[in-house]
């Protein structure tokens, strides 16, 4: 475990597109790759990423394409065009979620206060994602870096609640290591 200070970072909303389709259909996979540069991962809880874009596994026929560089409507319409004629769905939900990052030495301890997932490196590796509950709120957790850094996607409407909860959860580590919270 690194000695990095523990912090909560508010990252706001992010371009997010829900894609539904059949990953066994090569045309779907090719079209996705053409539109996003990424193939949808088929193993549960895995992600594919390239620079600041990523595809997160949500379910066997459902993915979340996220991007920190492209606006939602442009990405969504490019994907829609690429998937034309296939039984697939592309829905822009860029405004539906807000993102928080929990980073630093005690990031896992902070999350463990409200999330029953086992985030130990043996059970949850770099690049993995999982939908679960955090403080009774549905959350999508994505481990972005080994630092560790966990990104939490939560519904916009509960953003304030989650922020307040995270602030309380990180408090004991601020005393110890001088971390920060929003």
């Amino acid at each position: 475990m690194s000695g990095e200070r523990t912090a909560i970072v508010e990252r706001g909303s992010r371009t997010s597109i829900v894609v539904r389709g059949d990953a066994r259909d090569v045309r779907f996979v090719r079209a996705m790759a053409a539109a996003t540069g990424l193939e949808p991962p088929v193993a549960p809880g895995t992600t594919a990423h390239h620079l600041l874009d990523a595809v997160l596994w949500l379910g066997p026929d459902e993915w979340l394409v996220v991007s920190e560089t492209q606006p939602g409507h442009a990405l969504a319409s490019r994907m829609q065009q690429a998937l034309q004629g296939l039984h697939a769905a592309v829905i822009d939900v860029s405004d539906a979620r807000v993102v928080y990052a929990v980073t630093g030495a005690h990031a896992r301890d902070v999350l463990a206060k409200g999330c029953a997932l086992d985030l130990h490196p043996r059970a949850f590796s770099l690049g993995q994602c999982a939908s679960s509950l955090l403080a009774e709120v549905p959350v999508l957790i994505h481990q972005r870096s080994a630092e560790p850094c966990f990104e939490l996607y939560v519904a916009r409407s509960v953003g304030e609640y989650v922020r307040a909860w995270l602030r309380a959860a990180v408090r004991e580590h601020l005393h110890a290591s001088g971390g920060s919270s929003p």
Partner: peptide, 16 residues
Amino acid sequence: AGALVGPLHAPTRKTP
């Protein structure tokens, strides 16, 4: 109850 007391008692949803 743990930390889920006072303003954290239950998730609160707010519109924009």
